[in-house]
Amino acid sequence: MVYKIRDKETGKVYEVTIDEETNEITVYDVKTGKPVKTVNMTIEELKEAGYEVEPV
């Protein structure tokens, strides 16, 4: 599923895909559409880390 996340401190917005089964999150560069990095976190962990998470 695709989400937009926003860093509450910097205001930067990222587009991510989240595999609900493995909790693998792939972060994409919004301008190029290319993957930047992959992390292993849940949506709740993202929120605790200071991100706003919205489904696209």
Results as ranks from 00 to 15, higher is better:
M1K: 15
M1D: 09
M1P: 15
M1W: 09
V2Y: 15
V2G: 11
Y3W: 09
Y3I: 12
K4M: 14
K4N: 05
K4H: 13
I5L: 05
D7N: 11
D7Y: 05
K8S: 06
K8M: 08
E9G: 08
E9T: 14
E9Q: 12
E9W: 10
T10F: 01
T10E: 00
G11P: 00
G11H: 03
G11N: 06
V13K: 03
E15S: 10
E15I: 15
E15H: 15
E15L: 15
V16N: 00
V16M: 13
T17N: 05
T17Q: 07
T17M: 10
I18E: 02
I18T: 04
D19P: 00
D19C: 09
D19S: 08
D19K: 07
E20T: 14
E20I: 13
E20N: 10
E21A: 13
E21V: 12
E21P: 04
T22Y: 07
N23V: 05
N23T: 06
E24P: 01
E24I: 14
E24M: 15
I25A: 04
I25S: 02
I25W: 04
T26S: 04
T26A: 03
T26H: 08
V27H: 04
V27E: 03
V27A: 05
Y28Q: 04
D29N: 05
D29H: 03
V30H: 13
K31A: 14
K31M: 14
T32S: 08
G33T: 02
P35T: 08
P35V: 15
P35L: 13
V36L: 15
V36T: 07
K37V: 14
K37D: 05
K37T: 11
K37H: 11
T38Q: 07
T38F: 09
V39N: 03
V39C: 15
V39E: 04
V39L: 15
N40T: 12
N40I: 14
M41S: 06
M41R: 04
I43W: 08
E44R: 09
E44A: 12
E45T: 06
E45V: 05
L46I: 10
K47P: 02
E48L: 13
E48M: 12
A49H: 12
A49P: 01
G50F: 05
Y51T: 02
Y51M: 04
Y51G: 01
Y51E: 01
E52D: 11
E52T: 07
E52Y: 06
V53F: 09
V53A: 04
V53I: 12
E54W: 15
E54F: 14
V56P: 07
V56K: 08
V56D: 07
V56F: 10
